[in-house]
Simulated assay, not measured.
Amino acid sequence: MTGTLITVAPTGAEHAKSDVPNLPVTLEELVAEAVACEAAGAAMIHVHIRGEDAAPTLDPQRLKDTVAALRSETNLVVQLSTGGAVTDPEAHRLRVLDAMPDSASCTMGTVNFGDDVFMNRWEFIVELHRRMRERRIVPEYEIFDLGQLATLRRLLDQHGPPAGGHVHVDLVMGVPGGMPGDASTLVAAAQAIPEGATFSATGVGRTTLPVMLASLSAGGHLRVGMEDTISFARGERVRDNAQLVARAAELASLAQRPPLSADEVRSMIRVAESN
């Protein structure tokens, strides 16, 4: 792999605006962050949205407006989260796909998520996979634990390849309750992904840098953003998402795998032209 896909996850569903004042929660804030992150080297944006009260929401019209605004102001590959918040019902999570993003997340199993449980039943996973293929939305298979890679193989064996035919995985590491964010675990996961697949890696909290460096050395790609960490260094809060993207781009360039453009990423993961 000669280049690096850098995905930015700017908001997430976990942090409260009252605790993290620079978290982008309005559409205007999100678009401004997206523009800055694209300039810093991001090619894809992983999107959670917030309501008027800054709380996580899966409101269908807000999702559609967000996709439209990001496409209007950037060339980023737009990926919506179908995870939402851990309390969101399955029907609302499936409805995310009606916003017709380029890509959407598809988590491969249930995982303890701190003090909560992120529920992903087998039947729900299959339905997400099926609906994405019908809409030609490219899934990013989110892996929170090593056993979920076996679930991914089962899904592909029983229900066929995803939209576009290419399998792209995101290893979400360092979540309390999921796999640890260290080099040995990343290597084990990378060895277990389906043949021909590509992978990104996300290090949550203080695992951000170890996971980033391990992923680059293993031929993987990167996801960074304030969804996953609000600390830039020991005792230093993140200024904005572009700061995290710029650091990822610098490390990728040092590894002689500079950031890929959004169009190169569309070709790599096979985003449908109509999307």
Rank of each mutant, 00 (worst) to 15 (best):
P60N: 06
V224T: 05
R136M: 11
A40C: 07
I45W: 03
L94V: 05
E127D: 15
T4H: 00
R237E: 08
V35H: 06
A55G: 11
E264Y: 11
D182Q: 13
E264G: 06
G225C: 04
A192V: 12
A249C: 05
G220H: 02
V31C: 08
G147Q: 13
H92P: 02
P161T: 13
G205P: 09
M44D: 04
L216S: 06
A39T: 13
E140I: 12
G83R: 03
A163D: 08
L94P: 02
T202F: 00
G41I: 00
K17L: 15
D19W: 08
P210E: 09
D88S: 06
H15E: 10
M179I: 15
L260Y: 00
G235V: 07
T185R: 00
F113T: 11
M226Q: 06
A150V: 15
D240Y: 03
R62Q: 10
L209I: 11
E90A: 15
E29M: 03
H92I: 00
V20L: 07
T107I: 08
T229D: 06
H15A: 15
A183W: 09
Q158I: 08
N112I: 10
T208K: 10
P10H: 07
S72K: 12
L222M: 10
P258L: 07
N120R: 02
S267Y: 07
N112F: 02
E227S: 06
G177N: 12
L97M: 06
A248H: 05
A55D: 14
P56I: 03
I193R: 04
V245E: 05
G147R: 09
V77W: 00
L149M: 14
L94N: 01
L186P: 04
E52N: 13
T4R: 04
A43S: 03
D228Q: 02
R50L: 05
L216T: 08
R223I: 01
L23G: 01
A36C: 10
F118Y: 14
F199R: 03
K17E: 03
E52T: 13
R71N: 07
L244D: 01
A246Q: 11
A91E: 14
D102R: 04
A42Y: 03
A189L: 08
E273L: 15
H168G: 07
E134H: 12
E14G: 11
D88N: 07
E14N: 14
Q158H: 12
Q158T: 13
L80Y: 04
L254W: 13
K17N: 05
P194T: 12
P56Y: 00
F144W: 11
N112K: 11
R131A: 03
G174F: 03
V265F: 01
A242E: 06
D53G: 07
A255R: 12
S81Y: 04
R153V: 14
G164V: 09
A190C: 10
H129I: 07
T7A: 11
A99L: 11
E227N: 07
G196Q: 12
R270P: 01
A42F: 04
V167C: 06
D157N: 15
L156D: 06
G181L: 10
Q79T: 00
P210T: 01
F232N: 05
T7P: 01
A197G: 11
D182Y: 03
E140K: 08
I269L: 00
Q61P: 04
E28S: 15
R234A: 14
L254S: 12
W122Y: 14
A91Q: 11
F118Q: 11
M173I: 14
A255K: 11
G235S: 06
L254I: 08
E142V: 05
P194C: 12
F118D: 13
L222G: 05
G178L: 14
